[in-house]
Design a protein around this nucleic acid. Sequence first.
DNA 1: GTCTATACCACGATAGAC
DNA 2: GTCTATCGTGGTATAGAC
Lengths: 188, 188
Amino acid sequence: MKEKENSKDKLIKTASRLFQLQGYHATGLNQITKESGAPKGSLYYHFPDGKEQLAIESVHLTAQFVSEQIVEGLNKSSDPVKAIQYLIEGMAERFQKEGCKGGVPIASVALETALISGPLRDTCQSAYRSFQAQFTQKLVQSGFEENRAKELGVVINSMIEGAFLLSFTSGNCEPLLLVAKQIPVILD
Amino acid sequence: MKEKENSKDKLIKTASRLFQLQGYHATGLNQITKESGAPKGSLYYHFPDGKEQLAIESVHLTAQFVSEQIVEGLNKSSDPVKAIQYLIEGMAERFQKEGCKGGVPIASVALETALISGPLRDTCQSAYRSFQAQFTQKLVQSGFEENRAKELGVVINSMIEGAFLLSFTSGNCEPLLLVAKQIPVILD
DNA sequence: GTCTATACCACGATAGAC
DNA sequence: GTCTATCGTGGTATAGAC
């Protein structure tokens, strides 16, 4: 029994991919409707607030996808060092499979819209916060003191985001892998 | 004896600021010429290849500016840990003064153009490489083994870029400061 | 070196039929 | 829910006078 995909979901899914690949301003609504296969006239029916609303829901989808990767990676070991390494290596592997051309989740939209759209900026910010909360939670569960775990959550998140940016720009996963390699040093 | 600024330099300087603030696609040539105060007709005279060429030279200028900050910060101490901490704290302070709204150097242009312009992508990539080379050099001078110094250069660069992205998105310098705080742990 | 005018196109968004 | 047509704007880039 196959779950049928409705137009709204197809639009969000396609937009999510294109915003990540090309950024916010470079991705047009025409391209999104065309590639999604959704009826052209349906966009403003499902998203009355237009591009901004579509982008917000797309970032939500991307964030949810990344969160699942994080959960999955962190559950592979009870040792937080190994768990976080698994997670980053998994991300690097997935990125490698796309030829390091899959884009960086959320980052481009966050940078492009932080100054022009409050709601979109809030959406990106809360996505980042949920990522680091997952790291923090894992560390607390492993016995780290709470304040330190919070700080480390931010730092680990920074490292991963930065390494993604460098990997994408260089077309090479090395930065992600080197960051993974340093995790044992940071979680001393 | 005041150094007079020519039109070309004014255009590059303004473009450099706007690309960093708004990104590549959101910044129009009209806005650049208007805000630069340069003659409107002079753009395609100085930059025959149009927007792409202007962006390349703008990224060069931004990269040069950041490199100077790095050199200045690293020279404040012979101890690499303190030096890198000074550097990051200095960046955070400067960012704070702009209300954390100054944009992230290069990042948005890098993300937006990596897949659509080889030359621009190469320019961004070489900027990032020069940053990390400065970190590596400092570490080698301080007695770190060369391969390890190279790896750490990449990781430190990742941390800073990621922290910038998070600080800009959240409008708060905390990520940059927390990264600075972790430097002693990483350079064990 | 600089200016004006303009060609040409894509964008986001809306209106109104079905 | 979906379609088509269209509006207004702003984008990059070019041509040709000065």
